[in-house]
Amino acid sequence: MSLSYLLRRLGSVLLVLFGVSLVTFAIIPLLPGSPARVTLGVQATPEAVATLERQMGLDRPLPVQYVSWVGGILTRGDFGTSLISRQPIAGEVTRRVPATLTLALAALLVGLAIALPAGIFAALKPGSPRDLGVSVFSQLGVSVPDFWMGILLILLFSETLGWFPSSGYRPLSDGLAPFLQHITLPALTAGIISGAIMTRFVRSALLEVLNQDYVRTAHAKGLPRGKVMRKHVLRNAAISIVTIVGLQMATLLSAVVVVEIIFAWPGLGQLALTATLQRDYPALQAAVLLSAVAFTVINLLTDLSYTFLDPRVSYT
């Protein structure tokens, strides 16, 4: 990977992040009501609202407010103060980011545990009944609404069998058992759907490699089937699969928003919805900004990983 490509890619990411910060900042000026009015309530006098707006710096020109907002985040990690709890938002998001990332990662592991065997199983006999079966599973999985999947899992494993709690979060520091108990259903909800999506990609990545001349040659040389799979097929398909994993991780950051809300999982998605419903706009800004930054960084890392994994790929 050339340095100029790396710099160009980083430059474009910085540009996107600048745009993201502008859009996120614009949430408050675009809103129908003033944050000061939300804080003081509908009974507050216009004078009181104006005074609080001055204290919050909302009477300054927008560019000045933007620079102050971004500067606060970059230099002090200051996302402002919640209009509802009156607490600094930074503490709230610091608690929530690990919860969101843990759930996305757990869902990704569940997805991979489904997609890798299912994709390989289908690709080994394309056009066979088992390939059709895997395709049907994948198509159904892609079509299931995640919130419905969550409800069905709660109905079965929580309400009926009583195996797992239907909501809540316990960090790993509380012990492995309570952590696993609480994360299993949310991770399954997002993971099964993610697995269905990835199954298609794993299958087509493998099929592409299986049709290459060097695989045919390996078979012609009389190499055992397992060895051909391990040494030639899986190794070469790994590049595409890693790319899919990276893209899925980014997609899961969006998917877990819904899952967090269903399972009362204290992540950024739940914060965003609660903030929207309670009109706690600085909290919404923080949740949206952090999610978008994580989304962009994961996409960048996925992009850059091509060149590390496949020396044939070079960007100039």
Partner: peptide, 24 residues
């Protein structure tokens, strides 16, 4: 396309929730 990239950077559900927060 850079403007589209900016919109792409937001997780879809969060972007929809944010727009709903603004529009009602």
């Amino acid at each position: 396309m850079r403007a589209m990239d900016v919109l792409f950077a937001f997780p879809a559900v969060l972007l929809a929730i944010t727009v709903m927060a603004i529009l009602g």
